[in-house]
Structures are given as C-alpha cells and as structure tokens.
Amino acid sequence: MTDVSPEVRAAHWAKTKTLTITVLVLWFIFSFAVHWFASDLNALSIFGFPLGYYMAAQGSLIVFVVLIFWLASRQNSIDEEFGVAEDDDG
C-alpha cells in the first residue's frame, strides 16, 4: 500500500469530490437544462444561428471539450498539492 497517511488521503479525496461535483453540475446544465429550453432559446440568435439549435449543434460540445481539459489540469494540481501525483510520469 502506498505510503500516504489517511488524513492526506481524506483531504485529497474531499477536494477531488468537490471538483467532480462542480464538473457534473456544469455537465448537467449543458447536457440537459439548456436543451430543455431550446424552443425558447431559438428566439434569440448567436453568430447568426438560432441559439437553441446552436447549443445542441455546437455550443454544448465546445463546453464539454473545454470542461474536460480544465478538469484534467485542475485534478493534476490537486494531486500535486497533496503529494499523491505519480512520481515518474511517462
């Protein structure tokens, strides 16, 4: 078993959970909440697109890509902060 104290593990996991929940809330908004109101959003326009259509065809997708890159870098700094990142990164 890796030599990390239970306290450090618990603190690391608490912070990881907070990050994960934040990511999932954003995921929920752009996966479901936004599209539930697509018909209303279509009355607005963005870059010449009806907004509801744009979010489903492009907007949500861009959010997902950015969100995962952000998650990866945030989680890495959390791992480093608690000294539980990998030693020899390949």
Partner: peptide
Amino acid sequence: GYGYLAFVVGWTGGYVLVASLMAP
C-alpha cells in the same frame, strides 16, 4: 432536424462522465 441533435450532444457529453467518474 433538431431532435436528432440529441445524439450529437449525447455522444460527446458522455466523455465528461468518462473523464470525471471512470477513466483515471
């Protein structure tokens, strides 16, 4: 039309779950 875009959203948003809950 629009209704079919559910596949587009679903087949990309799933990766948020893969990244946050599973893969690492």
